[in-house]
Nucleic acid binder design. Sequence first.
DNA 1: CGATAATTCGAACCGCGGGTCGAATTATAG
DNA 2: CTATAATTCGACCCGCGGTTCGAATTATCG
Lengths: 198, 198
Amino acid sequence: MTNTATIDRKSAERAARQELILQGALAVFKEKGLEGAKIDEIARVSGFGKATLYYYFTSKEEIFSALLLHGWLSLWHELEEIAVGGDSPRATFISMLKKIAEMVNTDRPLYEFLFQAPQSYTREENERSEWKAYQNRLYKVLMELIEQGIKQGEFPQMEPRLIMKAMGGLFHGLVFLGKDRDTITENEIEEMLGSLLG
Amino acid sequence: MTNTATIDRKSAERAARQELILQGALAVFKEKGLEGAKIDEIARVSGFGKATLYYYFTSKEEIFSALLLHGWLSLWHELEEIAVGGDSPRATFISMLKKIAEMVNTDRPLYEFLFQAPQSYTREENERSEWKAYQNRLYKVLMELIEQGIKQGEFPQMEPRLIMKAMGGLFHGLVFLGKDRDTITENEIEEMLGSLLG
DNA sequence: CGATAATTCGAACCGCGGGTCGAATTATAG
DNA sequence: CTATAATTCGACCCGCGGTTCGAATTATCG
C-alpha cells in the first residue's frame, strides 16, 4: 500500500507538471495567437510528448480553461482587497482599474490572454467555465460601484450600463490597443478616467 | 463571336452573383462568428453549390477580403466628405465618429464584421489586402485631426497616440461592447467624447 | 440545330490538427 | 529482485473543412 507522504509528493509533482504545461501553452499563445496554438507545439515548447499532455489534461480546452482560471484567481486575489477597502465608489473604481493595469504590466502575455480569449472563446456552451464566475464577479462589482457612484454624484448622471461600456472600452483601449506594447502608466490611466468622469 | 452587349450583361450577372455570395457569407458570419463560418454553409445560405463559390472566388479568404473591401469602401465614401469639410479638427473628429456610429446602426452585422475581423484575421501576410489601405487611411486621418487639435488647444495636451487609443477604445466600447445590441445614439457618442476631451 | 463555351454542383480528395493506443521506460512496494 | 502501478511518448487514427474534379446542364452563336 502506498504511504501518505509519497502520495503528497506525487500529487505535488503532478501539479508542478501541469504548471509547466500551462507555461508552455501561454508561451505558444503569446507567439501564435489563440487560433494558431496547436497542441503539438505546446507539447514541444513545454518539453513533454504530445500524449503526456493528455495524461495531465483531458482536452485542449481544459488547458486553456485552467490557464484562464489561474489568471483570474491571481487577478481577483489582488482586486478583492481593494473592493472591500471601504473607499468611496469612485476611488475604489479607479483603484481597481489601476491595479488591473499594474497586473497587466507585470505579465502582459497572461493578461492579454485573459482579456482576449473570452470573446473568441465564449462561443458555445463553455459558458459555465469556472473562470467565467470571476469575470462575472468583477463585472458585477464594477457595475455596483458605478451605480453607487452615480447616486452619490461622483459619476456623471447617465445610464450605468453606458458608463460601464465607456469605461471598459477606454480602459481596454489604453491598455491593449496598438502594436506598440508600451506599458501604460497608472498615472495615465487615472488622468484619462478622471477626465471622462468629470 | 460574342457581342459586346452580351459581355456586359454577363459580367453584370457575374457581379450580381458575387454579391449574393457575399450577402450569404455575411449572414453566416453574423450567425456563427468568424471562425464558425464554413463554406458549406455559406454555399447553402447563398443558394449555390459549394463548387460554384470557387467559380466566383478563388478562396474563402478572398470572399472575406471582398466583404471587407465592400464595407470599407462604403464607409469611406461617407467619411470622405466630412474629412475634407474644413471644420475645426475637433468638430471634424467628432463628426466622423458620429457618422461611423450612424453607419453601424444601419447595418450592424456588416460593420461588426468590419471592426472585428481585422484583429482575428490580420495574422499572417494578408497585410497588404486592399481593404487594409482604407483602414490605415482612416487611422491616419483621425490621428492627424488629433495632432491638429492639440496644437489648437481643442484637445488635451497629451501624447496623440494615447488620445487615439483612449478615443478608439471608448468608441469601440460604446458601439460594440455588451450582449445587448442597443443601437447607440449619436448624442450619447457626442456626450462621452466631449466629456473625455474636456 | 449543332458546336462550343459558360455555369453549376455533388462527390471525392487531402492536409491539418485534436485526440488515442500500445508499447516502453521508470518509479514504488513488498 | 520481482511484480505492479505510474508515467512517457511517437505513431497512428479520424473527422472536419477547404479545395478540386469531372460530369451534367444551360446559354450563346453561326
